[in-house]
Design a protein around this nucleic acid. Structure first.
Lengths: 206, 206
DNA sequence: ACCTGAACACCGTTCAAGT
DNA sequence: ACCTGAACACCGTTCAAGT
């Protein structure tokens, strides 16, 4: 019964991580309030420091868990269908879900804005998130041959930045329909591929 | 000598606005520190409240001045050349300049992230900025006939969101070359028009 | 007209102390 | 092992007071 990891004692840590993630997606790293966070978990502010030595370490742990979960989600999407065009089509849904969850932003987009004020340990995790997404997009672009091999990296970065920008703009109007319209605009302009191979006339239902 | 607006007394107000703008582009509305701001202007924190009744009013005044200045810049660009394709080509330079200025973000992108915590008076000015940019882009797209008349609004919004996203991603790596690469990626994908009419082979210098 | 010091409640953080 | 109250310096804000 001694020295067991992941037991009852770890629940508080996990609860803090989950609550901190939701708070940071709404208010950012700077807006993350330790006392309010502790309140939501049912402990006192000072107790947070038993689980995390500093706000910087908490922020880094939240951001790391965030990109780890995101990487797992993307891999699951790819594992389900093995259809890279389908994956590229569904990719914007990942960012849509944050908006659906009380108009929240991607944690790492918020932290990208706050970059100057971020502790170094947090900065590293924010960049890892973008790296994971760009690598996955690049793989999908290559597998679906929508761009030539040498261009998949550049296109992947452009798609990532554009989708993050769409989420940011939609948040500032609390308007998910705007997000959908922006993504459609990317498809119409050719930044994002379409599922069917670019038929000039869409058919009946339009 | 009485009741004259824009005299010596207004200098403090202007100095506060200028300093607050630079600070907010680096740290956001939440990260705007009244005492530090006053320090930069050479007065005490309490004196800020003589010129602005609250932080919310200061934030709104800063954001309003920001989009007013930006609108004037865009109109000047259009007035100089009267070439809509040239204007669309130069548009990303507007966002590039913020990055050149100590890796700063567009004030309204930062505030878009902070949207949930923004006072209503500030929210309104943040939206006005996006409105101004989308309207200008829409006008340029229509004038240059790069998209059909009905699509210029959608394309304008997509371009704005994508450029803002590129700036956000570049900031998170303090990398202006990445910003340029993202913009080039938008051009290669067809989101942004190119100056010369899409020649398949670029020629000698590449 | 413009600025200030002192005070308020609130923040991140520490630490000695509880169980 | 896990949590707490009290304290620290710092925040936005107010206000009576200075010139």
């Amino acid at each position: 019964m001694k020295q067991r990891a992941g037991d009852a004692g770890a629940n508080a840590r996990e609860a803090i991580l989950a609550a901190a993630r939701k708070a940071a997606q709404a208010h950012g790293y700077g807006g993350l309030n330790i006392r309010a966070l502790a309140d939501g978990v049912g402990i006192k502010g000072a107790s947070i420091y038993y689980h995390f030595p500093s706000k910087a370490d908490l922020g880094a742990a939240v951001a790391r868990r965030y990109w780890e979960d995101s990487a797992a989600d993307l891999d699951a999407l790819w594992g389900e269908t093995s259809d890279p065009l389908r994956c590229l089509h569904d990719y914007p849904d990942v960012f849509r879900k944050s908006l659906e969850s009380e108009n929240r932003l991607c944690l790492c987009s918020f932290m990208a804005a706050e970059y100057d004020d971020l502790p170094d340990v947090v900065k590293r995790e924010v960049q890892a998130f973008a790296d994971v997404h760009v690598a996955w997009l690049s793989k999908m672009l290559f597998a679906s041959s929508v761009v030539s091999a040498g261009e998949s990296g550049q296109r992947a970065r452009s798609i990532y930045a554009a989708v993050a920008g769409a989420q940011l703009m939609a948040r500032s109007r609390s308007d998910i329909a705007l997000y959908d319209a922006l993504i459609d605009g990317y498809r119409a302009a050719g930044l994002l591929p379409t599922l069917q191979r670019t038929l000039p006339e869409p058919g009946v239902d339009h």
